[in-house]
Design a protein around this nucleic acid. Structure first.
Lengths: 137, 137
DNA sequence: TTTGCTGTTTACTGTACACGGACATAACCG
DNA sequence: CGGTTATGTCCGTGTACAGTAAACAGCAAA
């Protein structure tokens, strides 16, 4: 470690250590419940059996990328958003949405921080309605 | 490339190629406008002059990490969110917010997709008001 | 007891994100 | 004019992340 790199890899690390139900453990539980062998499931997801084994044992420092997580979710009948959160990652379509309005989207998220699921649902409904109404300018 | 790795590094790549105003070019313009030398600015940001030079020439495949971008924004008097978007990255506090409500937050963002800045502002205000009202359950 | 599955371990690979030292160029000062 | 100092750049190197490959051990059926 040199004189630079004073505040490196902070975000990912802290996020990663935060997945409570253990991503790998959860995947293994669901995979076996679905009757997939490790090799078979790895093949369907598009990763190596080796890597899947490591992931399911939580032996990897950072979980798979979002596209693989999405594949897993589809095969297991789970929510991709839920799995992504468990893995400490952001669902793949969200960055583009955020960057399309670099000021307003982050501001909205920060304002929505801490709200209950019910409150968030109401917000979501209002957003949908705005879209139906069209641009009011 | 082996039999696996069929759909690798999709997200980052596509996002990266999307920064229109060229992140590096923009940084250089703002830095020189502020009268910082490359070495001085690099020192303040906490990166090496070499690396900064590469970044400003857009010679790097992917721009700096969010924490360094944030530092740059502060020094240059620019919006960290704006710079992050330009670099194809998500502001560092957002992943945690999203993951705190893995279903509702992505749903909200998707519903808000395509709305105008004015509409988003209205949503944001409503969110702020909800928070003041507290949990209605 | 071999075959054929299961999952696991050790070692290796390629790319992203960065650092360090040597370098060329221009400005400044005596 | 020559030497010093500050500018930015090129080339090589290092490390972490996201994986792969080959070889392995355990077990069940033929």
């Amino acid at each position: 470690m040199s004189v630079y790199s004073k505040q490196q890899k902070t975000e990912r690390q802290t996020v990663m250590t935060a997945h409570k139900p253990k991503f790998g453990t959860f995947i293994r539980e669901r995979r076996t419940a679905k009757g997939y062998s490790l090799r078979r499931f790895a093949e369907l997801v598009g990763i190596s059996p080796t890597y899947l084994s490591h992931v399911e044992q939580d032996k990897v420092d950072s979980p798979p990328t979002v596209d693989r997580i999405k594949k897993m979710a589809e095969l297991l009948g789970e929510s991709a958003d839920e799995l992504s959160a468990m893995a400490g990652r952001v669902p793949e379509d969200l960055p583009k949405i955020i960057q399309s309005q670099p000021e307003a989207m982050p501001a909205l998220l920060r304002a929505a921080k801490g709200l209950t699921p019910e409150q968030l649902k109401r917000l979501q409904d209002q957003a949908s309605q705005m879209r139906r109404e069209g641009d009011p300018s």
